[in-house]
Design a protein around this nucleic acid. Structure first.
Lengths: 89, 89
DNA sequence: CCAATATTTAGAAAATCATCTAATTAGAGT
DNA sequence: ACTCTAATTAGATGATTTTCTAAATATTGG
């Protein structure tokens, strides 16, 4: 896990909201884009950063790309910073 | 809590390391700076961003400024993103 | 008050980021 | 093969971030 990429990915509000939306279940790029005031190309760039951080995985379904949340990376990254003052619980 | 500022502050590796160092206890700006290959003015800018995010608090002790970790903001921000798929625990 | 120490603020340069429009790729159905 | 829909990549531009050096501020001690 490239922790730098993860936190960099989390630094933009739109990207955090994408993750929050995906908590409810997988969603296509288009459906996700409907929740924002940004153009699809812009959202596409955000999807890419989330994918590079492995915070989401993508799967093709016909002409659509379906994005899935990868919760474990989120837990590892955030948990890693939160916990471990002197030892792991 | 300005969640945007918090995640923006967490996006830089030096700033995350500052927080990690402060887990062991309060430390002066100079002591913190000794752990990095960056100049003091640069570190000072990082301290400011952490302070604006309320991730750290500062207290003067003579000519030194002592930085303290504010763990609760970290917990709120990260916990807020981690938890709450449909309800708070 | 003056000098020394600790740290910050100011200003500038280089790098990175976010965003848009236009063009391209990929798949499905006719 | 053609067309429609879904989404991406390319290229450009403006804004923000990171970093440095130089100068300024604050506090203590003689």
């Amino acid at each position: 896990m490239r922790i730098n990429r993860v936190f960099e990915a989390l630094s933009h509000p739109a990207r955090r909201q994408i993750l929050t939306l995906l908590k409810a279940g997988p969603m296509s790029a288009g459906e996700l884009a409907d929740h924002f005031d940004l153009t699809k190309p812009t959202l596409s760039v955000h999807f890419n950063k989330l994918r590079e951080a492995e915070l989401v995985a993508v799967e093709r379904r016909g002409t659509s790309l379906i994005y899935h949340l990868n919760m474990s990376i989120l837990e590892e990254a955030l948990g890693g910073l939160l916990g471990a003052k002197d030892q792991a619980p």
